[in-house]
Every structure is written in C-alpha cells, then in structure tokens.
Design a protein around this nucleic acid. Sequence first.
DNA 1: ATCTTATTTGGCAATATAGCCAAATAGCCA
DNA 2: TGGCTATTTGGCTATATTGCCAAATAAGAT
Lengths: 110, 110
Amino acid sequence: MKSNKKIRHEARAKIIKAMAHPSRLFIIEELSKRECCVSELTEMVGADTSTVSKHLSVLKNAGLVTDEKRANSIFYRLRCPCIMDFVRCVEDVLSANAKDNVRILRFCKK
Amino acid sequence: MKSNKKIRHEARAKIIKAMAHPSRLFIIEELSKRECCVSELTEMVGADTSTVSKHLSVLKNAGLVTDEKRANSIFYRLRCPCIMDFVRCVEDVLSANAKDNVRILRFCKK
DNA sequence: ATCTTATTTGGCAATATAGCCAAATAGCCA
DNA sequence: TGGCTATTTGGCTATATTGCCAAATAAGAT
C-alpha cells in the first residue's frame, strides 16, 4: 500500500475506530437527538462516570463531537450529523445478514 | 442502557469494528472497484498472506464481504456497496477536523 | 475561603487485536 | 495418485482497549 494511501486509511480508521464501541454508538445516537452533559449520558449508558468520560474523550479526539461548558456542566453534541447516515448504512448490512440467515435456516429445514 | 438497545448497538459495533482498521478499509475500497482474490489483495496491502486472510475473515464474519471460489482462487467482493457512502461521511469529519486545525493555527499566529 | 457538584485523569487487571511464522487444508492439474 | 498453488488455521508475542476505583481538578454556591 502506498504511503499516501496508508496515511489516508489510517486517518479514516481512527474515526471509525472511535465509533466502534456499543456505548459510543449509543452516545452518538443520543447526541444526534439532542446535546447532553456527561452526567446525563452516564445515567443513560449505565456505566461509571469515568468510563463515560473516557468514551467522550475518544469521540472528541476523533472530531466526532464537540463540547461546551455551560452552567456547571459540560455539554456534548455531534459535530457532523451525517454520522447517522452511516449508522443507517450499517443497518443495511445487518438486515442483509439477517436475510441470509433466514435463507440458510430455510435450507437446513429442507 | 436497555437490553434491546444494548443488543442493537452491539450488532452495529461489530460491523463498524470490522471496518476500523487501515488495511481493512483499504481492502473495502479496492473491493468497491472490483472483486479481488486473496493473493491480489495480499500484493496490494503488502502484508503476509495469513494476515490478509484474517482481515478478510473479519470482514466476511461481519457480513461486509462475500467470497466465491472460482478456478483455483477465492474471490471476494463487497456485499453492500453503500459502505462507500459511509466512507464519504468519514471524509466529511476529516475535513471538518482539518478546517478546525487551520482555524486554530491562524489563532496561534495572531 | 470552603463546600459541593461535575468532570477528568492515573493506575491497574482483564480482555481483545494485530501480525508474523509455520503448519494444515483444499482443490486443480499432470 | 502425487505435486502444486491458493488460502486458512494455530500459535505466539507485542500492543491496544476496556472499565472500574480512587484521586485530582474545575468552577459554582454558601
């Protein structure tokens, strides 16, 4: 793989890797509806505050979210709402997988 | 996080995690152009055959690619070409990041 | 200034991932 | 059949990620 391609794919992978975790996907989905502060997200995710904080820093570091201090909380929001389009695409893959499984199951029964 | 949400996000994460690697993104991009066999991809990626084979099995396991044996090679192809739409979305995030950096840089110079 | 609340950071153990080599397997071809 | 080519699998080490606890930090409120 050529060096410039490699760099490009590494940059992409970093962003995708930041999304590649159930809790972070959940956070992304919630933030696509409305901005939230850490304690709200902690409550929703149901993990330790420090864990959620670290997830948020992964998302922020990848440029997927931004934060803003207001009152005495820090509010996070999605930086590129188009991210949800991607999630829709992932759903396509999931439903293709599901269809295949149904087909395989049908084969087995015969 | 409710159990059904959790399961949903885990399923999504599995697929996204399968994409979250530079070599696998490269493979996905190449397969979006045309189907390839393992040895072709090995050549292009520039890693050990076994490494590429394992990457392919990750992609296949996630339902992102399918394989078909023909002649004495196994050809892989993308299962949902919409995956490339996602990559475009990732590019949006990347360029938003780049713009921010330029802005920050400009601030520093002042 | 001190207390309190919200968030981040450090540290650690458990687990997962990556990539190479060597060995196993699969199927074509002579 | 026996060799050849293409691909996968097992095994290993190095590295990265996750999630919790405890401690540090930040900044409002009293």
